[in-house]
Nucleic acid binder design. Structure first.
Length: 661
DNA sequence: ATAGGGTTAG
């Protein structure tokens, strides 16, 4: 028996306090719906008022504690001390909850000890299996199952559900098939829950055919099985098939709706995801935290800040908790909408944070040009003993790039292996190439690529090529472009960057030659596309297109804007025009770039002085960058453009990227 | 008490 009174005291001392006052929307959401940390607060309050815990007190408390993870991992021990202190250590409910909590936070030994306390009750074994599964130790789950069988405990349907879930999440099809056989031999079938779990296991192991077969053989089908199939199909890239299935379903609950919404998110069909969410509300199914995560992610990708804000209101109205997942998603959304302040509000208001929270805020700060603050956040993360992972370091390295901290970035890069035992992957090397490239150290950047232990991919070569373009190093640039084209002949970025580089070096003959080669090969530039949200609607603009209902107004507004710009010295820079057309045509091509259309639309439709936020699918061209700088000054507007790789915050005629992108 | 769907990068 583990008894640690110090931990028990720690429980009462360590009750999370509320963060500093935060903006109204999410604070309402927090207050209406206590987060996990508040379960401990409620318990402490109960003791302070002199109430004694009973058999119903600890299981939910343990569940909340186990969910928190991270540095709070010691907490099950603290609750355990109280369980013993109040003489409740012998109930099967407490024992199972303890087993599950210990297993979920990764304390396998304590979990087994608690299991012994329950004298090996089947429910406690189930708790061990599912607890390990919650803690993402799937191998431990199946080991627990094997031990259970060996110990002679009788598996229940929940046992099979739990171990099948572990097989699926661990992507262990071989083991899953073995368990399936055992299920058949055991005689529990037909059992709706077990059958659904089998379907889910095959789906998770990407064996959709087996999943289908099982599903079709089920005499009675429930929402769980349907849901597994829907999300499985979506995950395998067959969203439309998932949708057909969804449409044919007799009954739809929140989980199924969420699976469908998330299916669209996974397929990068974000507008349809939001459309589904709208339909979900019409159908009077109440969304939950899971739904919100998918919806918020869709908003993030679309840069749909207004809808995102509305989602906050919806959450507080519906009493949906702002748990760690929702909070993390919100930080990502505000960051991706270019609103660091709001991202920080959410971060500060969160009761419990995990490594994803820290990583999200570090990335959010870094990518929006607050490099130094991002690095401060990293130090804070370390000081609260949250372990960084490889993604955290992408944020940290990006921060160094944006702050121009070459030496510091290299130090962090080395610390990955030396201090944190994280092997750098190609993306980390890409960050270093970006870091060096931005500082003009092109040769060192090239050396980094040639010396790294993995083969360079097209992204990292593209990063170097972009650096060559900015710094006018056409010598290295040409050879990098050649490598890039050899690696990925259809990659239009390579041609565009190379062409831009020639243009910068006034090598017009080479530009012409390259353009002809591109035409001959039939390589098409992905059309430029910009999104802007206005009054809760997402408007899409494609370069040169007139599909928007306000097109006539927009194009004439654009003419006025350009006339205004010319009055203050703007001259169209057509050096980066990719297509081979006459000079006047090139100007039109430039004028009708999607972000310019979106800005014209925004100037027509939005309130004065409001921030204009645009999401673009490609890298911005030099001319748009120049023009938008001027627009921000001339019209007194802050304009935030999120392009494929970075953010541009235009204000008073300047851009946060300092003209490097 | 144990059970289906979730968060960070490119």
């Amino acid at each position: 028996m583990l008894l640690r009174p110090s931990r028990a005291r720690g429980l009462l001392d360590g009750i999370p306090r509320r963060g500093p006052p935060a903006a109204a929307g999410y604070r309402a959401a927090c207050e209406l719906a206590p987060a996990d940390g508040d379960a401990l607060a409620a318990y402490a309050g109960m003791l302070a008022r002199g109430f004694r815990p009973d058999a119903y007190t600890f299981p939910p408390l343990l569940k909340a504690v186990a969910r928190r993870g991270g540095p709070a991992a010691a907490a099950p021990g603290a609750v355990h001390a109280h369980v013993v202190k109040f003489g409740l250590g012998h109930g099967a409910h407490e024992a199972s909850a303890l087993v599950a909590a210990y297993a979920a936070v990764g304390d396998g030994a304590a979990a087994r000890a608690a299991l012994l306390d329950s004298r090996g009750a089947p429910v406690a074994w189930n708790a061990l299996i599912s607890g390990h599964c919650r803690g993402k130790r799937f191998g431990e789950s199946s080991r627990a199952f094997a031990d259970m069988v060996r110990a002679g405990a009788a598996p229940t349907p929940v046992t099979y559900v739990s171990v099948l879930s572990a097989c699926g999440k661990g992507r262990d099809l071989l083991l899953g098939v073995q368990v399936h056989k055992r299920v058949v031999e055991s005689g529990v079938l037909p059992d709706l829950k077990v059958e659904s779990a089998l379907v889910g296991m095959y789906v998770d192991c990407a064996d959709i055919d087996s999943a289908w077969r099982l599903f079709e053989d089920m005499e009675v089908r429930n929402v769980v099985a349907w849901t597994s199939l829907v999300s499985g199909l979506a995950r395998l890239g067959q969203v439309d098939r998932a949708r057909e299935l969804f449409d044919g379903m007799p009954e739809r609950d929140a989980v199924l709706w969420t699976a469908m919404i998330d299916g669209y998110v996974q397929a990068a069909r974000f507008r349809e995801a939001l459309e589904m969410f709208r339909e979900m509300q019409y159908s009077n199914v109440t969304a939950d935290e899971f739904t919100m995560v998918s919806v918020i992610t869709a908003c993030a990708q679309l840069g749909a800040l207004e809808i995102g804000e509305w989602v906050m209101v919806y959450m507080s109205r519906q009493g949906i908790r702002m748990d760690v997942f929702v909070g993390n998603a919100l930080i990502g959304m505000y960051s991706k909408c270019g609103s660091v302040e709001r991202a920080l509000d959410v971060f500060n208001g969160m009761h419990s944070r995990d490594k994803f929270t820290w990583t999200a805020i570090i990335l959010g700060l870094a990518v929006n040009g607050h490099g130094e603050e991002a690095i401060d956040m990293f130090h804070r993360m370390i000081s609260v003993s949250e372990a960084p992972d490889e993604v955290t370091f992408i944020g940290v390295l990006t921060a160094c790039t944006h702050a121009g901290l070459v030496h510091k970035g290299q130090e962090f890069f080395h610390s990955m292996t030396e201090t944190y035992n994280i092997a750098p992957n190609v993306v980390h090397y890409g960050c270093i190439v970006d870091l060096l490239g931005r500082a003009g150290k092109i040769t060192e950047a090239l050396e980094t690529i040639d010396q790294m232990p993995m083969t360079p991919n097209s992204t990292i070569l593209g990063t170097l090529l972009a650096a060559c373009r900015v710094h006018g190093n056409s010598e290295i640039g040409e050879s990098v472009a050649e490598r890039l084209i050899a690696l990925d002949p259809e990659n239009s970025t390579a041609y565009i960057l190379l062409s831009n580089m020639y243009a910068k070096a006034n090598r017009w003959e080479d530009v012409r030659r390259l353009r002809q080669a591109i035409m001959k090969k039939g390589i098409k530039k992905e059309p430029g596309c910009s999104l802007i949200e206005m009054n809760g609607m997402i408007h899409e603009f494609v370069a040169g297109e007139r599909s928007h209902p306000m097109s006539n107004e927009i194009y004439s507004k654009l003419e006025n804007i350009i006339a205004d710009l010319r009055n203050v010295g703007y001259f169209p820079d057509v050096t980066e025009v990719f297509v081979e057309v006459a000079e006047e045509e090139k100007q039109k091509v430039i004028y009708w770039h999607s972000e310019k259309l979106a800005i014209a639309f925004a100037l027509l439709s939005s309130e004065p002085n409001t921030v204009i936020r645009i999401v673009k699918n490609l890298r911005m061209c030099l001319d748009c960058h120049n023009a938008i700088k001027l627009i921000s000054r001339l019209y007194g507007r802050v304009i935030v453009v999120r392009d494929r790789t970075r953010f541009h915050h235009f204000r008073h005629g300047l851009c946060s990227c300092k003209d490097y992108w």
